[in-house]
Structures are given as structure tokens and as C-alpha cells.
């Protein structure tokens, strides 16, 4: 069934493209990629842009000088809700110098705060990029009431094209290896579906806090 569907669809497309070539000639060249000027900055302007854009999208951005300060800030954020942060057992964050131990387990619906790590940040839009895997469960970004993401300062890129370039650099002989899920998260969950009133926390977290970790 599926195979006959495949032939039907591809056959119809090829027939249409033959018609197209007869009418307007061969396909055009692929276009170049314009990257907005604003995204083409270097640190520290790039960091400033990232902070500005992330805040404009409704995220809170906190700079932390080192891992001890990071652990303290995460614990304090969770404590506001009377809980400890939830961290994936395989996350490098598990090894932070925690004063109070975090919950090293999978996130559950109703948890106050889960913490993810960003593979990169996109300054152009104030987004953080999360790659799924043992260190970064997808659900950490969606099930908790509040979400925190740790962004190494060196991972702040300009446009999303720089993220693709980074992934291409890391590609092995089999080409680009993509995680099951790559997310760009830009501010906390929201919806304007009721009378166009924009409200935070539609299905995902009510707030997003980005910890920009100075890493040398």
C-alpha cells in the first residue's frame, strides 16, 4: 500500500515538474543565505544581544561567575517553590558543588524546577538550543512548573546558522548526527488563544531562567 502511494505521489510530482520545465525552463539556482547584520557580532556585544533578546522574549537571565555560584543560584530558585531542583542523573550538573543535594531523577509532572544545559545559545533571537539525550531529557523543558537552562558563555553564537556550522564541524564520516530532538527555546511557554491576551505557562513552564555561566 505504502509503496503504491509512494509511486503515485512521486510520479505525480515528476509529471508536474516535467510540465513545469516545459513551461518555465529548468529549476533556478538555490538562493544564498542572508544573515541579518544584527546577528553578526562578536563577544561581548554578542552576549549583550543575547541577554537583551532573551529578556524581550520573557526569560530571566542571570550571570554566574563559577559552578559553585551556579549550584547556589539553582538551589535558591527551587527553594522559592519549597523544593530542590530536578537534575537528570547523567547531566554534568549532577557534579556541581551542591550545598544541598538536588533531586537526581527524571522530571515528573508537577515538579517545581527542572534544569537543562544548552548546547548553544542563539543571540539573534535570545534562544537556547537544547539537544536531547541522557544528559538532557526533553521533558525537563516541558513538564516542570519552572525551567532553568545553563548556558556556558562560550556557547553563545550569533545566528542559528552558526549552530548548524558547529554541528557540521562535529559531524562524523556518516554525516550530521542529530539528536532525536533539538529544541530552540525562546522565553517561557505562552498562549494568546483566549481573546488574544498573551499569558505565560500554557502547557510548558510558567517561567524560564537562563544561567549564563562564565567559563573562562
Amino acid at each position: 500500500m505504502t509503496d503504491s502511494g509512494r509511486e503515485a505521489v512521486l510520479g505525480a510530482v515528476r509529471q508536474a515538474l516535467a510540465r513545469r520545465t516545459a513551461a518555465v525552463g529548468p529549476p533556478p539556482c538555490p538562493p544564498s543565505h542572508l544573515i541579518p547584520q544584527r546577528a553578526q557580532r562578536q563577544a561581548p556585544e554578542l552576549h549583550a544581544l543575547f541577554v537583551q533578546q532573551a529578556q524581550a522574549a520573557g526569560a530571566t537571565v542571570v550571570s554566574v561567575p563559577d559552578e559553585a555560584a551556579l549550584a547556589q543560584a539553582l538551589a535558591a530558585l527551587a527553594a522559592e517553590h519549597g523544593e530542590v531542583p530536578v537534575v537528570a542523573p547523567a547531566s554534568p550538573l549532577a557534579k556541581l558543588p551542591w550545598a544541598t543535594a538536588p533531586a537526581l531523577r527524571a522530571v515528573q509532572s508537577g515538579d517545581a524546577l527542572a534544569v537543562s544545559t544548552a548546547v548553544a545559545a542563539i543571540a539573534e533571537t535570545g534562544s537556547v538550543a537544547l539537544a536531547s539525550g541522557p544528559e538532557n531529557p526533553v521533558l525537563s523543558a516541558f513538564l516542570p512548573e519552572h525551567h532553568a537552562v545553563v548556558v556556558p558563555a562560550s556557547a553563545v553564537l550569533g545566528p542559528s546558522e552558526d549552530l548548524w556550522a558547529l554541528l557540521r564541524e562535529q559531524a562524523g564520516p556518516e554525516g550530521l548526527v542529530f539528536p532525536r530532538t533539538l529544541h530552540w527555546v525562546t522565553g517561557p511557554s505562552r498562549s494568546g488563544d483566549i481573546e488574544m491576551t498573551m499569558l505565560f505557562g500554557a502547557h510548558g513552564p510558567l517561567s524560564l531562567t537562563l544561567f549564563l555561566l562564565e567559563d573562562g
Binding site: Q53, A56, A57, A88, A90, A106, T125, G126, S127, S132, G133, P134, P137, V138, L139, F178, P179, R180, T181, L182, H183, W184, V185, T186, G187, P188, S189, R190, G204
Partner: peptide
Amino acid sequence: EASVYTTFSTGPRRPEDPD
């Protein structure tokens, strides 16, 4: 400037993935 969640989904979960 960007929607809140832009999600690239590629294949099923990997053997090591927790979710």
C-alpha cells in the same frame, strides 16, 4: 522575533535516551 519552541524531530528516541 521567534516562536517560543522551535523543535527539530529526527527519528525515534535513541537507545540511550531517557524519553
